[in-house]
Amino acid sequence: MAEAKAWIEKYFGGIPSVKIPAKPDVSEPRQEKEKEFTKNDSLANKPALAVAYHMPTRNTPEYYAMGLLDQILIQGDNALLQKKLVDEKGYTSYVSGGINYLGNMFNYNGPMQIMFDVTYDNETSKKQLMDAVDEVIDGLSAKVNQEMIDNAIIKMRSQLYDELGGSFGFGRADLLCSFALFDDNPARINTLEDEFKKVTPEIVKKTISEYLRKTNRTILVVNPLLANNEKTN
């Protein structure tokens, strides 16, 4: 370690500092109305749908609660949206999703959405899908209890360990660097689990009520322009 430090000083120590430019204001206002958009896709032959809800501010109790809600709703075979849309309704074969599609819930620093997306058959309607989604989300608050949270924490830990060991251990370097860069505190890596354990059913319910409301979401539908092309079906 002493050798590594000496090399770091030797090679990086002489690089001059420069003034860091001011970070732009990237804040987002509270969304008050549900938004919906359609994207024409000239290469797709099946429709697809994505639903995104704005995330709570990073590192707040609600943020950690949303991390658990990601586990409860989206991640793994026992997640409620998987069970509803795949197992029960058979609308799709898989629900993709999570917090930060370009990384994970820890390595961003600003507004973000929790999102999920599915592809589905032309015979299934967007309304059928969204009705099923709403059935899950609308009924969620009443189901929240400590056991649900405990199970979500186990899944969260498992995913966190996967990420830390991922890419030959690079996941660990990624979180250490992210926390140094964003929070000036890479040791946060060792307190993540405690933050999730602090989440109570009340915080989860509060998070559902404020952040999983319809007026906080954006729906994006892919309109498949090749849907009726015989060669692609």
Partner: peptide
């Protein structure tokens, strides 16, 4: 651009869900 579902939803959604130009 030349992929079905290219940019969906990872590149598309931020453009629709956000209102601040930076996002």
């Amino acid at each position: 651009l030349n992929q079905p579902y290219g940019g969906f939803p990872w590149l598309d959604m931020p453009q629709y869900a956000n209102t601040n130009w930076y996002n």
